[in-house]
């Protein structure tokens, strides 16, 4: 990155002093990175090859945990649920947040509406989960009360296997405020000349949006998709509290990888197995991010390129 200077005499000494100063300034993070990231990851890799019941020591068992994982129906179930959740909620959140941002971008009273959409994203998920468990209550929930006023007999959302996962996704959509703010900011940055040029080409508003706005904000879409997905892969507290009486909800459709990992580590006496699950989860997240980056090369438009 920096130009390499010939290291001779005074310059070499300066160079060394600079290295020392630099590493000194970043030293808190060197320690933080090593102790709270690197060491745990290494430990987790080691544990994944052990039988480690938490209350007793870890014993080496080779690749047992990974082999067991292949035939573990609960692993596949939770992985499938998680993938479905990520696969549905990310596109849904992305489309909705871009739509809202597009509406906000050219509206009067933008600050107010933006604030209204943004505020819920700051609400603790634990509180969000209990709020929605109340809203979605089959008998007394607000959703069904409102539906009743227009003559619709609402379903028991959280007890229905087909509606439980959508309910979790709705809570995710409720919390998209940060993405919306980001999209609005990106849309504000689109140079006005581009729209003027598009006008000259006779484009309507939707084509302009498609041909000008979307390409211009595509780096932000990439950023949001990646951060949202990393978050969605870890989803835990919402389903955990939403279905506090029946784990994972009806048919366990909302029993996710992190919850299964937690159960194995801290309830089922299988920290070793949980660590194998953790590594698989890590690899999946890395692979997913890699794929998104690869795909994005073709789709994302960077200014100046």
């Amino acid at each position: 990155m920096e130009p390499m200077l010939p290291e001779s005499g005074l310059e070499g000494r300066n160079r060394l002093r600079q290295d020392l100063a630099g590493w000194l300034w970043v030293s808190p993070w060197v320690v933080g990175f090593a102790v709270f990231m690197l060491v745990p990851i290494a430990m987790s890799l080691y544990y994944s090859f052990t039988d480690f019941p938490l209350l007793e020591g870890a014993l080496w068992v080779g690749t047992d945990n990974y082999r067991r994982l292949l035939g573990d129906a609960d692993f596949w179930l939770t992985l499938r649920n998680t993938v479905i959740f990520v696969g549905v909620s990310i596109p849904v959140c992305t489309v909705i947040s871009i739509t809202i941002a597009a509406l906000l971008n050219r509206s009067r009273g933008r600050d107010f509406f933006q604030a209204a959409i943004f505020l819920p994203s700051l609400v603790p998920l634990a509180a969000g989960a209990i709020i929605f468990s109340w809203l979605f209550n089959g008998e007394y929930g607000l959703v069904n009360r409102v539906l009743a006023t227009v003559g619709i007999d609402g379903p028991p959302w959280l007890l229905d296997r087909n509606l439980a996962l959508p309910a979790v996704i709705v809570i995710g959509v409720w919390g998209i405020g940060q993405a919306v703010v980001l999209y609005v900011a990106a849309m504000q940055d689109v140079p006005e000349q581009l729209y003027e040029a598009a006008d000259l080409d006779g484009m309507g508003p939707f084509r302009k949006f498609w041909n000008v706005t979307l390409p211009m904000i595509s780096p932000v879409i990439l950023f949001n998709v990646i951060t949202m997905s990393i978050g969605a892969f870890q989803a835990f507290v919402v389903p955990f509290m939403l279905f506090d009486r029946v784990k994972g909800g009806p048919d366990r459709v909302a029993y996710f990888s992190t919850h299964y990992l937690f159960d194995n580590a801290f309830a089922f006496d299988r920290m070793g197995y949980a660590s194998a699950l953790a590594w698989v989860q890590l690899l999946i997240v890395l692979a997913f991010t890699g794929v998104v980056f690869l795909v994005s090369r073709k789709l994302v438009f960077y200014r100046g390129s």
Binding site: G138, E139, P156, L159, D160, P250
Partner: peptide, 10 residues
């Protein structure tokens, strides 16, 4: 069964 589940949610 849906009706039963709705009844139970109350």
């Amino acid at each position: 069964f849906g009706q039963l589940q709705k009844f139970r949610s109350g």
